[in-house]
Amino acid sequence: MKRNISIKKLNNLSFKNNFLEEIKKIKDIPKMPSFTYEHIGSTAINNSLGEEIIDILIVVENLHEINNFDEKRLNNMGYHRFAHKGKGFISYCKIKDFTKMDYNIKLFIAQKDTDIHKNFIFFNYLLKNNNKIFEDYQNFKKENFNLKSNSKEYIKKRDIFIKKILNGDKNAKRT
């Protein structure tokens, strides 16, 4: 059975408490490597179109610190490694319904100061601070929503879109 996908305008305030609660749970994992975190994605930006999935960027000093031991502890919290072709980060989804493969939280674990880490931060910054880029991304989501059922095709188009934005805004201040 495929995951039920729907997008709507989101109010970021309704997700903030859930984000903070989840961070507290992750911080409480025994012997979890130290990390910083940021709420990213649609649930972090008011009036953004998206699914009701909280995206969390976890930044560690060394990506290899998240080894099998840490993965098992994340599994115990309901997180499962998400199959992807992304390099430089590991993603986990917190599954709420295994029958439908529905999830409500997605972790992106990246190594500090890598290009992928900087790109996550910079794209999130652009969405929050550049109205044109925000609107362009909202339009991209509307125009390509029908592809979400074929997530590989959607992800490929989304990644191309984001890469163009990141490369096109080289003059913007990177944080």
Score class of each variant (00 low, 15 high):
1 M>S: 12
1 M>T: 09
4 N>C: 00
4 N>Y: 06
4 N>G: 01
4 N>D: 13
7 I>G: 06
10 L>F: 02
12 N>Y: 07
13 L>P: 00
15 F>T: 04
18 N>I: 11
19 F>K: 02
19 F>T: 05
19 F>G: 06
21 E>S: 13
22 E>M: 11
26 I>D: 01
29 I>K: 07
31 K>F: 03
33 P>K: 07
33 P>T: 10
34 S>A: 10
34 S>E: 14
35 F>I: 07
35 F>S: 06
35 F>W: 06
36 T>C: 05
36 T>S: 15
37 Y>M: 04
39 H>G: 07
40 I>M: 04
40 I>Y: 06
41 G>S: 05
42 S>N: 07
42 S>M: 04
45 I>Q: 00
47 N>H: 10
52 E>D: 13
53 I>T: 10
54 I>N: 07
55 D>E: 13
56 I>N: 05
59 V>R: 10
63 L>G: 04
63 L>H: 02
65 E>I: 03
65 E>L: 14
68 N>S: 11
69 F>P: 00
70 D>N: 11
70 D>Y: 06
71 E>Y: 00
71 E>V: 14
74 L>P: 07
74 L>T: 03
75 N>C: 02
76 N>R: 13
77 M>Q: 13
79 Y>W: 05
79 Y>D: 03
80 H>W: 03
81 R>L: 13
82 F>E: 10
83 A>V: 13
84 H>F: 01
85 K>T: 09
85 K>G: 14
86 G>D: 11
86 G>Q: 06
87 K>R: 11
88 G>W: 07
88 G>N: 09
89 F>I: 09
91 S>F: 00
93 C>K: 15
93 C>E: 10
93 C>P: 00
94 K>A: 00
97 D>M: 03
97 D>T: 06
98 F>E: 14
98 F>L: 12
98 F>W: 08
98 F>C: 01
98 F>Y: 12
99 T>N: 12
101 M>L: 14
103 Y>V: 09
104 N>Y: 09
107 L>R: 08
109 I>W: 05
109 I>E: 07
113 D>K: 11
115 D>K: 15
116 I>T: 10
117 H>Q: 09
118 K>R: 14
118 K>D: 12
119 N>S: 10
119 N>R: 09
122 F>D: 06
123 F>C: 01
125 Y>M: 10
127 L>G: 02
127 L>R: 14
129 N>C: 04
130 N>T: 03
131 N>E: 15
132 K>M: 01
133 I>W: 00
136 D>C: 04
136 D>F: 00
140 F>P: 08
142 K>N: 08
143 E>P: 00
143 E>A: 11
144 N>D: 08
145 F>W: 02
146 N>M: 05
149 S>P: 00
153 E>P: 00
153 E>K: 13
153 E>I: 14
155 I>R: 04
157 K>C: 09
157 K>M: 14
158 R>I: 01
160 I>T: 12
162 I>Q: 10
162 I>H: 03
163 K>A: 10
165 I>D: 01
166 L>C: 05
166 L>G: 05
167 N>S: 08
169 D>Q: 14
169 D>T: 15
175 T>W: 02
